[in-house]
């Protein structure tokens, strides 16, 4: 039932995705696999614009009926935009985690942060392993 992982972006082991816009900024969200694990998302706490986050630091919070989960910054940077629509319709992440359900846009502090991230094929392999 999971949607396939787009090849135009990179993935963290914590199930976040990063789409490098090629202009020093990147969009960040959680993967379809992550939303499927969380199920019914009912609340999203977005970071304030201008906040500087280090790679691996909690950046946002997603809550389902039963759980509270941190979203870790897959890359370091400054928050330059957030998906405000999620405050009213958090279920957008369930419906379209890779596009409409994006969480924030970051101005990258270090392009090197992208290097250790997984490509779609490697991420496919990771979740296949987790499912077993």
């Amino acid at each position: 039932m999971s949607k396939s992982n787009p090849t135009d972006r990179l993935y963290s082991k914590d199930h976040e995705w990063v789409k490098d816009n090629g202009d020093g900024t990147a969009a960040v969200g959680i993967t379809d696999y992550a939303q499927e694990m969380l199920t019914d998302i009912v609340f999203v706490e977005l970071p304030p614009i201008g906040k500087k986050v280090a790679k691996g630091e909690p950046m946002a919070v997603v809550e389902s009926v039963k759980s509270v989960s941190d979203v870790f910054a897959p890359v370091g940077g400054e928050v330059i935009d957030v998906n405000k629509i999620l405050e009213e319709t958090p279920e957008l992440i369930n419906q379209d985690a890779f596009h409409e359900g994006w969480i924030a846009r970051l101005k990258l502090s270090n392009a090197e942060d992208l290097k250790p991230l997984l490509n779609a094929a490697a991420y496919d392999a990771l979740i296949k392993e987790e499912k077993h």
């Binding site: 199920t39 019914d40 009912v42 389902s64 009926v65 039963k66």
Partner: peptide, 11 residues
């Protein structure tokens, strides 16, 4: 079992 499909639907 905590959920079969999702909590909201079962609720």
């Amino acid at each position: 079992p905590v959920q079969y499909t999702n909590v909201i639907e079962e609720h």
